[in-house]
């Protein structure tokens, strides 16, 4: 498999093409994945999430710069929303990372959500896997930042960084309460703006509530609350410190491999659902559906009948 062999050697065009195949559900993509799986598992996947305007892309750009100084090879998956009406998207996160455009050790991929809820795209997992196989040891995944329901990143990433900003109303930040339960690093970006103290207090209170709700464990990870001005790269080295520290903590506790494993398991279930859904569409008996439509059959009986039909089809192979 030419593409697989090339991408594990770090060939950029090959890696990019594999990502396209996976995006397209081209079967060659699946072949690449099974060919390169032995080269994966080493990358530290870091999610960046937070409300719109928190400066996630600018922070990502500063983190890339710092990580490069520490000789990490950095992969970036930048997710932007697709239009729910047309499916189109304008993906502009690269703009803020333009200074890394010519660094061969930085690979940036922009993806649209394409109807996927949860702040990620369907192919984000696959894209991370390919980046991992290409030897990018630090992978930043920047989520959409629509303001809610971005919990998906937690299932994907080893480390979730929550990016906030001063002065945003409590009600907006409180939407992130769900994420606060799980975020491992909190960064208040744009810390030179007014309202920093108030915002820090707000986050401290939430972290305190979270700590008191969890059972005491001597080796538990304590989420650091950091401040940064990403445009000037202030405080961003400390964020990379925290990311690396969390990586070490995960490995020391066996959590690193466990999280990768849980992620793979979840992804397998996603693929299974995907395929079952395709099978259902293929094998749903049109006569049964017509009967439901004509109100000759109730929906519960119809579902039973359709499932029986699917079982029969699967038995026949």
């Amino acid at each position: 498999m030419e593409v697989a062999a090339a991408l594990v050697k770090g060939n950029v065009a090959a890696g990019a093409r594999a990502m396209r195949w996976l995006d397209d559900r081209d079967p060659r993509g699946a072949d690449v994945v099974s060919a390169v799986i032995g080269h994966t598992g080493g990358a530290h996947v870091v999610g960046l999430t937070g409300p719109p305007g928190a400066g996630k892309s600018t922070l990502a750009s500063a983190l890339i710069a710092e990580a490069r100084r520490r000789e990490h090879r950095v992969g970036v998956v930048a997710v932007d929303p697709s239009s729910p009406f047309t499916g189109g998207a304008i993906l502009g996160d690269r703009v803020r990372m333009a200074r890394h455009a010519l660094d061969p050790d930085v690979f940036i991929r922009s993806v649209g959500t394409r109807g996927q809820a949860g702040g990620l795209s369907r192919s984000t997992h696959d894209t991370c896997l390919i980046l991992d196989a290409m030897g990018y040891d630090l992978i930043l995944v920047e989520t959409v930042g629509v303001g809610q329901d971005e919990i998906e990143i937690v299932a994907l990433a080893h480390t979730t960084v929550i990016v906030g900003l001063p002065g945003l109303g409590d009600e907006v930040q409180a939407v992130k309460a769900g994420l606060m339960e799980v975020g491992e690093i909190i960064v208040i970006n744009k810390a030179d703006r007014e309202g920093l103290d108030h915002t820090l207090q707000h986050y401290e209170t939430m972290l305190h509530l979270r700590a008191s709700a969890q059972p005491d464990a001597p080796d538990a990870w304590t989420p650091p609350l950091l401040t940064a001005v990403a445009t000037r790269e202030e405080g961003t080295a400390a964020v990379v410190d925290a990311i690396e520290a969390h990586g070490r903590w995960l490995r020391a506790n066996g959590e690193f491999a466990a999280r990768s494993g849980r992620r793979a398991r979840a992804q397998a279930m996603v693929l299974l659902r995907d395929r079952l859904s395709t099978l259902l569409d293929q094998h749903a008996d049109p006569q049964v559906l017509a009967a439901v439509e004509a109100r000759e059959l109730d929906v519960y009986s119809a579902a039973d009948a359709l499932l029986a039909g699917l079982r029969e089809a699967l038995r026949r192979g």
Binding site: G92, V95, T231
Partner: peptide, 13 residues
């Protein structure tokens, strides 16, 4: 002063 890379250089995006 640093160099400015705005959040969106493409107007209206």
């Amino acid at each position: 002063f640093g160099q400015y890379t705005p959040d969106s250089q493409l107007a209206g995006v």
